[in-house]
């Protein structure tokens, strides 16, 4: 048990970073997200769990402004962003990655990350044309900063290669670096470890913790339960658009309706729980 575990159960002392209340989205009669309320305090790693089609991605899509909400409200650091355009939400410190990787075709790894630093730059059209000293300095700084971020997220591939040609793991890491380049206060990650092995996933978990310690708030959709239990301080479990359980991860996963949503019949759930415990065994404390 860590200090943060007890904190999450107690009174929320940290200010709320992302406050989602009664959020609803319907696609052609299907309630993809149905009256979802999630509150994530600052400097928290919050997981959103649930089977495929539960509506997890749609929640992130609404927070980042990708998809407009039918009803409900989203506040980011106390500001209502429900009706804002994605770039306006991004300017309030929200960055994200994608379940289906969305890198820019034709861009190198380095360019991709620098493109993320758009708001951090003060370069003007005229400065760029005349190649002013400020422009030159900024370009140098951008290259250095992008290289730093790539190192931080663990991309070891040549920075001059096309981002789209990297392995999926590296592509996901480049997406994280691109999101971090915006200097976010809130980072939304949609299945950041999909397709990664345990070692790589663990590295992502450690990265998230490092970012949290730097002051970021992280909301991630994650299927790797071991990772969730190790790194998430709180979770929301979703099924069919609704939140089934919310709170401390281990507790949430013990709830009957959560087990049922995840593993179907209860007898299966027991079997899988045993498997899960067995898998946690080697190496784990």
């Amino acid at each position: 048990m860590t200090a943060t575990d007890s904190e999450s159960r107690g009174v929320q002392t940290a200010p709320v970073a992302v406050d989602i209340s009664h959020l609803t989205k319907t696609f052609g009669g299907l309630a993809a997200v149905d009256d979802v309320t999630i509150s994530v305090p600052e400097r928290r790693i919050h997981g959103i769990l649930g089977p495929n089609g539960a509506g997890k991605t749609t929640v992130l899509n609404m927070v980042s402004g990708f998809v407009s909400a039918d009803a409900g409200r989203i506040d980011v650091f106390g500001e209502d962003v429900t009706r804002m355009k994605p770039f306006q939400i991004a300017r309030r410190g929200v960055a994200r990655t994608y379940q289906n990787i969305r890198l820019f075709p034709g861009m190198t790894v380095l360019e991709t990350v620098i493109a993320g630093a758009y708001l951090q730059r003060s370069s003007t059209i005229l400065g760029a044309i005349l190649l002013s000293p400020a422009e030159r300095r900024e370009r140098r700084e951008m290259r250095d900063r992008a290289a730093e971020l790539l190192e931080k997220v663990g991309v070891r591939a040549d920075h001059g290669t096309l981002a789209e040609t990297l392995s999926y793991g590296d592509q996901r890491r480049v997406e994280i670096a691109r999101a971090l380049a915006t200097n976010p206060r809130v980072l939304l990650l949609d299945e950041p470890t999909a397709g990664m092995n345990d070692v790589e996933s663990e590295a992502v978990g450690l990265l998230l913790r490092e970012l949290r310690d730097l002051g970021l708030t992280l909301i991630l959709i994650e299927h790797n339960m071991r990772l969730v239990e190790e790194f998430c301080e709180s979770v929301s479990v979703m099924n069919s658009g609704a939140v089934l359980a919310q709170g401390e991860p281990t507790w949430c996963l013990e709830q009957d309706d959560v087990k049922e949503a995840y593993f179907g019949k209860r007898s299966d759930a027991a079997r899988i729980a045993t498997l899960r415990r067995a898998r946690r065994g080697p190496g784990g404390a």
């Binding site: 994605p86 075709p105 034709g106 360019e111 493109a115």
Partner: peptide, 15 residues
Amino acid sequence: DAVREDPAVAQTLAI
């Protein structure tokens, strides 16, 4: 470049 390739993603980069 970003806007042309994927305007939605470009927006989430504050563009």
